[in-house]
Design a protein around this nucleic acid. Structure first.
Lengths: 190, 190
DNA sequence: TCGATTCAATACCCTGGCGTATGGAAAAAG
DNA sequence: CTTTTTCCATACGCCAGGGTATTGAATCGA
């Protein structure tokens, strides 16, 4: 009936560390030996917990997917009548400096998806969930189907696009710029 | 005083092929031996034309930068009074299916920039040029400084973001969606 | 106490890929 | 017709990194 000493390393630990490595080195950058060194063990440990490198990557992807879906559902919960605020909240959370560490992961996964069909499928699932959740909010604000779809698309294109742009490009008044864009996207909403 | 037979392979040929390889395999994916095989020669040739792999990558980046700057200047030329059309033209060129092969390169370079300061610097230059050129157009349409900066930012965030989203997410009426977004971005312009 | 199980270390093998050194053919220069 | 220069092939050294096999040391269950 203990919990600390035994189970020194479990799959979850490897997965989290691998996710960090994915974020700043891309999928090709997650090397099992480097990972082992970072966790202060050797390959021997890794190949006990995982079948092979692909096994780890698959888990990383799954881990990411579940986290993203949980997050978007949480961020788009709105009490009736406050849908507009909720959209602004989403823009705030994803486009601003919050969620700092999420951005590199998001970008790495999306780049990964360009070269791996399985990954592309998962990203598509996440995108669909985000798109639908946000579209619901626009619909609740009185926009028609087409307009809701368009703005929802714009929300995510903007959010991911902004994280792709180099920081200096945004200039010093990034905050003001952000607010103005949010205003434009949520125009004519009740 | 001849030009055809001699100089079977020049640097430009290697650079173009490497750019293609960069587009669909990332910077780590451009291998000199693979590249040589693709050009039906061996490494021996490569190391005659280039000092090393880094030399090639540097040239690829430079090649990309010059092309992008030339392109954005061309796309943002507007005769006085037709600036709004020109903005719509930019949105059309970059967000639609045209310029198909440019998108993977753009994404690969941007991902590359996340892990290489030199690359990040070049991307920043390109971004700045694009940003300023488009901002000029908005200013000419009567928008103030802040609004012009915001919309110019939105244009590129949208353009790059849309290429990051999975195609299926956009649904079947992508064209209508595109038009609606373009309408929103160019609202209140004279 | 004593196997059985869990987790990790060590020692290998093998491949891919960078860079170098050297050789060779073909064209250009003389 | 030589000689030099240009361009590419061949062969090699080297290292990083994936995967396997084996050993070893704890811990658990009995």
């Amino acid at each position: 009936m203990e919990k600390a000493p035994r189970q020194m390393l479990d799959r979850a630990t490897w997965i989290k560390s691998a996710t960090a490595m994915l974020a700043d080195s891309g999928p090709e950058g997650v090397r099992v030996e480097l990972l082992a060194k970072r966790l202060a063990v050797t390959k021997g440990s890794f190949y006990w917990h995982f079948k092979d490198r692909q096994d780890l990557l698959t888990e990383v992807l799954q881990f990411w997917k579940e986290g993203r879906i949980r997050d978007i559902i949480k961020q788009t919960q709105a009490s009736p009548g406050r849908e507009r605020e909720q959209i602004l909240h989403v823009l705030d959370v994803y486009a601003a400096n919050r969620n700092r560490k999420g951005i590199p992961i998001e970008l790495a996964v999306r780049d990964w998806a360009r070269r791996d069909l399985q990954v592309a499928g998962v990203v598509a699932e996440v995108d669909a969930t985000r798109f639908n959740q946000t579209r619901r909010l626009f619909l609740a604000c009185g926009l028609d189907e087409a307009e809701s779809a368009a703005r929802s698309t714009l929300v995510y294109a903007y959010v991911f696009g902004i994280s792709l742009l180099t920081p200096e490009t945004l200039g010093t008044d990034a905050e003001a710029c952000r607010r103005q864009i949010a205003e434009l996207i949520t125009r004519d909403l009740e």
